[in-house]
């Protein structure tokens, strides 16, 4: 196969993410192609470097630990703010946040339904008032 056909597979080859038969074709090409081998080596180096990234810890902002401990210190205390809710207020906030689209869609449907009901009511009412009085 030609180099331009092999190159798109090199990032997958570097991570062992190709099907075995595809990996074999790439491997055979690399054995006889210096340019592609060199690119494969670059990508392998990326993989090796990324594996080490996990061992590095990023320093969190000052006060994060305290903030977490404060928020998780007494979940029962937060229930006082919403005594009628069966679940903590944070859980409500999280559910609303995670399902924002669904809630917005449901609200939209409710508004349209209410509008349609109102229009229907007006139409029915209008029909009744417009009926001619017969004696």
């Amino acid at each position: 196969m030609r180099c331009d056909q092999i190159r798109p597979y090199l990032p997958g080859f570097a991570g062992g993410d190709l099907r075995p038969d595809t990996a074999e074709v790439v491997s055979e090409h690399l054995a006889g192609c210096k340019a592609c081998s060199s690119e494969a080596a670059s990508l392998a180096r990326v993989r090796a470097g990324l594996a080490l990234v996990a061992k590095r810890e990023i320093e969190p902002p000052a006060g994060l630990l305290e903030d977490i401990l404060e928020r998780t210190a007494d979940p029962a205390r937060r229930r006082v703010l919403a005594p009628l809710l069966p679940i903590p207020i944070d859980e409500v906030a999280r559910l609303v946040s995670d399902h924002r689209d669904t809630i917005a869609s449901a609200a939209g449907v409710a508004v349209v339904a209410a509008g349609a009901a109102y229009a229907l009511w007006r139409a029915v009412r209008g029909t009744r008032t417009a009926q001619p009085v017969t004696s």
């Binding site: 190159r7 798109p8 090199l10 990032p11 997958g12 570097a14 991570g15 993410d17 060199s38 690119e39 080596a41 670059s42 990508l43 180096r45 990326v46 993989r47 470097g49 990324l50």
Partner: peptide, 21 residues
């Protein structure tokens, strides 16, 4: 994933660490 690896290799290449793709 493959595009990301490619771009990261490009970043290493522009830092002169590996040969450019």
């Amino acid at each position: 994933l493959f595009r990301a690896r490619q771009r990261l290799a490009d970043e290493l290449a522009s830092a002169g660490v590996v040969v450019p793709l």
